[in-house]
Write a protein that binds this DNA or RNA. Sequence first.
DNA 1: AGGTATGATTCACT
DNA 2: AGTGAATCATACCT
Length: 361
Amino acid sequence: MDEQPRLMHSHTGVGMAGHPGLPQHMQEGTGGTDGDGRKQDIGDILQQIMTITDQSLDEAQARKHALNCHRMKPALFNVLCEIKEKTVLSIRGAQEEEPPDPQLMRLDNMLLAEGVSGPEKGGGSAAAAAAAAASGGAGADNSAEHSDYRAKLSQIRQIYHTELEKYEQACNEFTTHVMNLLREQSRTRPISPKEIERMVSIIHRKFSSIQMQLKQSTCEAVMILRSRFLDARRKRRNFNKQATEILNEYFYSHLSNPYPSEEAKEELAKKCAITVAQVSNWFGNKRIRYKKNIGKFQEEANMYAARTAVNAANASSHGSQANSPSTPNSAGETGSPCPMPSRHILTVILSSSQLINTLHV
DNA sequence: AGGTATGATTCACT
DNA sequence: AGTGAATCATACCT
């Protein structure tokens, strides 16, 4: 039992000499007239604590109760809390109150912008709308894709919120559990409310780092979704054969001036089931590629010229109009209807189209 | 796998 | 705003 005075000494030593801000009740104990009596009290308590594990459960329970009711218990408790505060906990204290994490803020902003967090938007995210506008207006095929996009986005949103709720619930449950545990333990070991508070903040920090991971993976999922659904370049599909033929037919029948008017573009777009912007793109590409390599397109040009001629001949023989979009045609177009036998038309048009081709360099 | 075709994008120009 | 030119990124073909 000679360990007891040593313990005593160490506690009083650290608490009083090393820490001038010690509570009044303990300061009195150092040199007061009843100092010996209080020393005796504390020694008594400590001895009871040291031997409590050797006792039977009932005995220990009774002793615990007796200890809790001891008149010196609150004082000892306070001192031990304070010592703990000034030694172990003060080291961790420095890293508290960190500023809001910029990365977390970025993630939050992005989730908000994409419509994952925050209030649900009825018409999809702003990003989706912007992407739709950028890709040349609302095409007929676009709307289907966007509804698919929205469905997938809301799926992500739902998962995100479910997980977030789960984490929050788990965090609250765990915090309550730990707080109860610490409160319970604070009866037998020195745990100050401040320490409980600190523990709670540690738990919250841990859980918020898990939340950050969730946010990060949600952001990644949204990015992948966006790139898959909204980046038109990635989603490039060749126009169907019929659409290409309609466009080519127009192009080669207006080879001298392959610049469809706005109305003509709209008509072509309608016929081909593509957007006006796509028609413009197509003509832009076609003009430049044709000009760059006329030789390569010669055969194609002849083929379409012939086809247009046949159409024209058929149309004239049936007394009806040709089936091509109305356009501001310039003089000398190859596809103008004329009352000639189709065979003659064919040869004339073939040669005229070749002539135009050669002039068009 | 590599080459070619093709639709989209970007930028400069008018 | 419309266009030409260059370029990108994917689809398609061999």
